[in-house]
Design a protein around this nucleic acid. Structure first.
Lengths: 157, 157
DNA sequence: TGATCTCCGATCTAATAGGTCGGACTAAAG
DNA sequence: CTTTAGTCCGACCTATTAGATCGGAGATCA
């Protein structure tokens, strides 16, 4: 349960790779093209291309056209959070369909629904977790993250 | 992203309803049948039945056959966690396919995968969160039973 | 014994994830 | 200024799964 998609998976791998090349390497500032990443991690080329396009469109990376072109991180790895990456690919975080319902767009159960509020609290906690971790944290030694339980924050009402 | 299934949604609603009837009501100990829940929350009857069967099979509730039959919580609401409920319906928590891979059952990217370890940490944090919240916590108006100190969080079993 | 339940497996279909294809555009190198 | 290697973009196909349905078997109690 709560699985992220393969595309999101690929996005994380690709960004981590780009970040490594750009910062940790002997050739800082080098652009990375789709093919290089696809071959390194055994990712279908065309699918990865779509993922990178989405990341580019959402401002995670910059694309450079033409030969010797490729991708660069749009900003420092410490300013790109896991939440931002995942949302670029899979859309906004939401445990349930009703997470982002506008007024007058209710689900069939909304009238007597008793779980919406507590689930929103859980969702918020998960969001904080994903947003507190950055690409930087995924490079090399990763620190253990802690999460605040909503049950300590007054879930009821 | 990270949406839980409708079935899991229904499971949470149903259990919350059963818990309310059983403990907070004027008729404590009363059994609750599938139809009652389905009508109250506009859930397709047959689908809800399957959900309740799964919950019963996984020890969340007890089923009582025959007329005047129905379901009862298998144990106190404070001892049923959200994680247990969700896993009864959707299977074990896992952000990626490789979360529960046995030896020799690797994904195509495993060889150079750089995100597996950090994602497992995230996953563990989410699990702790879902496991720290109980059915009791989802019943409005009722007092919380377990209050976790923030300083004790993030500790692995 | 009949009515009313739960139980259980088979099945259908609608949505989505995963993956593919083909062509348009762009920029650097010859 | 032409060629070529790369990104860009959108349509498309397919396999899997979630969501929902159906029919009958077995249990229980009046």
């Amino acid at each position: 349960m709560l699985k992220i998609s393969k595309k999101a998976d690929y996005a994380l791998m690709a960004l981590q790779h780009i970040a490594l090349v750009q910062f940790g390497d002997v050739t800082p500032g080098r652009v990375v093209n789709t093919k290089e990443i696809a071959e390194e991690y055994n990712i279908p080329l065309e699918l990865l291309a779509k993922v990178l396009q989405a990341l580019s469109k959402n401002g995670m990376i910059e694309s450079h056209n033409g030969p010797k072109g490729g991708y660069l991180l749009a900003r420092n790895a410490s300013h790109i959070t896991i939440a931002q990456i995942l949302e670029s690919i899979e859309g906004p975080l939401g445990l349930t369909d009703c997470s982002h319902e506008k007024d007058g767009d209710f689900c069939m159960q909304r009238e007597h629904c008793n779980i919406r509020t507590p689930l929103l609290k859980v969702q918020d906690s998960i969001y904080q977790l994903l947003n507190s971790m950055t690409l930087q944290d995924m490079m090399g030694g990763t620190p253990l993250i802690t999460i605040q339980s909503p049950s300590t924050q007054g879930v009821n009402r």
